[in-house]
Amino acid sequence: MTIELWSWPTPNGHKVHIALEELELPYRVVPVDIGAGDQFRPEFLAITPNHRIPAIVDPDGPGGAPLPLFESGAILIHLAEKTGRLIPANPAARAICLQWLMFQMGGVGPMFGQWNHFANYAPEKIPYAIERYTKEVRRLYGVLEKRLSGATWLAGDDYSIADIATFPWVRNPERRGIDPAEFPSVRRWTEVIEARPAVMRGLAVLSERQRQGPMSDKEKENLFGTTQFTRR
């Protein structure tokens, strides 16, 4: 049965695109243009009250019942457990996999996102904020470097949802002023993941809809303005 995927070509969207391709699960994409405000449409809010992409509807959830699901980490866990792939069966190894998944969800994603906002989109440059998040981004790259200097993958010996979750955020370090040569183990890991055919297919999902050029005032309002704070 075909999974309904509500998404947009962002790092969080790419996590699920890549996982679906790696797991060879059939899916149908419903574009949610977050710059245009599609995330506030009633049909999307019926799946996720948090109006954030991605979200899925799995018509064959546990017990055969349809399962609407939001939060990319929860979606990755569900898809991995559904297929028995990309997550270790051994309890200790599984805990380590989830540890690094939570590291991405609670650290890499939010901190990289804050850096991106204050460095690129905030209406005024706040040196304290830029310096704070620049230092935190570099610190997180250092944590990943330490881990990957002693392990092939974040969870250990096997590629997993922890790698899939982290990769879309960590790729293209130059955009954050990071020299890839400074973190050679992260660069090695990134290059190996980028070469995977399923990853290439996942990154291509909705790529034709990627915004080109500066962000419009309407896009800024939908993404950062008061519109997102309205109770719905």
Rank of each mutant, 00 (worst) to 15 (best):
L23K: 07
W8V: 00
I56C: 03
G84L: 04
F40W: 10
G37K: 02
V57K: 02
P26I: 14
G64Y: 06
A93F: 01
I34F: 03
N12P: 01
F70D: 09
I53M: 00
L69H: 04
E21S: 02
W100Q: 07
L67F: 03
H17Y: 08
V57G: 00
G35D: 02
A92N: 07
G35P: 05
A95L: 11
D60T: 13
I56V: 15
A36K: 15
I96F: 01
G13V: 06
P68E: 14
V57A: 02
T48R: 00
P49M: 14
H14Y: 09
A89T: 13
Q99V: 10
Y27T: 11
Y27E: 13
D38H: 12
I56A: 02
W100G: 02
I18G: 03
G64K: 10
I18S: 03
I47Q: 02
E81T: 14
G64D: 09
A74R: 10
L69M: 14
P42M: 09
K82E: 04
L69N: 02
G73R: 08
V29A: 10
V30E: 14
P66N: 02
A74H: 07
D58K: 04
G61N: 04
E24H: 12
P9T: 08
G64T: 10
Y27L: 14
I96R: 12
G35S: 02
L25N: 11
R41N: 04
P31F: 09
F70Q: 06
F40T: 13
E71Y: 07
A46D: 15
A19K: 04
A55Y: 01
V32A: 08
H51F: 02
A89S: 12
A95V: 10
E24R: 13
H14L: 12
E81G: 13
F70K: 01
G61E: 05
G13S: 09
P88H: 06
R52I: 15
L45K: 05
G63L: 11
R41T: 12
Q39P: 05
G13W: 05
P54F: 10
V30Y: 14
E71V: 08
N50L: 12
P91N: 03
I96P: 00
F40H: 13
K82C: 05
C97Y: 01
P88I: 10
H78V: 06
